[in-house]
């Protein structure tokens, strides 16, 4: 029986797909059979981030409509054993998703997989709703800035009231993942501090992913960032995966690097 994790935010561009790819890859690297599903119909990018955009034959919508079987649409990742991708349609839009169809696919996947990671689109419309409806857990991706925090708050409200778990009177555990955390901007007061965000959102923090150039580099080559061992973000994601698995890993709030004399002379940042 699989655990369904939705990666959502409300706000666009905060790092949901990056996180979905990283978390799914991280879980697979830890030995769990994992599938990541793209719910952003018409604006798909999980396939790009995972580097399998040239291997998509059948997609999520095809399976929902019965045009293809699930095993025909599932793409096996070439680098990580245990990792599979279910891409979505680029030609259709979110109206092609039906609650019944999504439920059927998740049920079928549950039989074979340990984790199902649902990459939600931005917004609070049908795509986002269906991505979260069947979830057991939620990762709410938030940037440390005011619009993202407010949208995440809205999303948490929807998770606690409109999900299937909520309808059944059960708790859907939401976790906060703070992404694109830029230490220097936080120091300058341009970005919110961790304590500010956790105080407003009042859900447990599952990780802080620092702003890191390796994220863009990884997406450019179609690789989940956890596969880049030099990446600070990648390491932070692996720690977050550990916490998802119940491990007690302390969260360290990134501190600005102390600039040495040499750096200051040359006006270099860390």
């Amino acid at each position: 029986m699989a655990k369904v994790i939705v990666v959502t935010s409300g706000k666009g561009g905060v790092g949901k797909t990056t996180t979905s790819a990283a978390v799914a890859a991280g879980l697979a690297l830890r030995g769990f059979k994992t599938v990541v599903i793209d719910f952003d119909v018409g604006l798909r990018n999980v396939d790009l981030i995972m580097g399998c955009e040239r291997r998509v034959v059948f997609d999520f919508i095809n399976v929902i409509n019965g045009d293809a079987k699930l095993h025909q649409a599932l793409i096996k990742d070439k680098r990580i054993e245990n990792l599979h991708i279910l891409a979505t349609s680029q030609t259709r839009d979110k109206d092609a998703l039906t609650q019944e169809g999504v439920g059927r696919v998740i049920e079928e996947l549950s039989a074979d997989f340990d984790f199902i990671v649902c990459d939600s689109p931005a917004g609070i419309e049908r795509g986002a709703f269906l991505a979260m409806y069947f979830a057991d857990e939620a990762i709410v991706v938030t940037n440390p800035e005011v619009s993202s925090v407010r949208d995440s708050d809205r999303m948490i409200g929807l998770l606690t009231s409109k999900s299937r778990k909520a309808e059944q009177g059960q708790a859907l555990s939401s976790h906060l993942l703070l992404t694109r955390y830029d230490v220097d901007r936080v120091e300058k007061g341009e970005m919110l501090r961790v304590e500010d965000v956790t105080e407003i959102l009042a859900v447990p923090l599952i990780g802080i992913i620092p702003e890191c150039p390796s994220v863009l580099q990884a997406s450019n080559v179609g690789m989940p960032v956890v596969l880049d061992d030099k990446s600070v973000a990648g390491k932070a994601y692996m720690e977050a995966v550990g916490r998802i698995l119940g491990e007690d890993i302390e969260i360290t709030i990134p501190k600005p690097a102390k600039k040495g004399l040499f750096d200051r002379i040359l006006r270099r940042t860390a």
């Binding site: 407010r150 409200g157 407003i200 009042a202």
Partner: peptide
Amino acid sequence: EPVRSGQQVYAPQGDLIVTAPVSRGA
């Protein structure tokens, strides 16, 4: 429970007591 952004709580004909934070937009 926290009253989140976009949520609305109404107590008709009586008082409303909230023992959790009330977010902006709630």
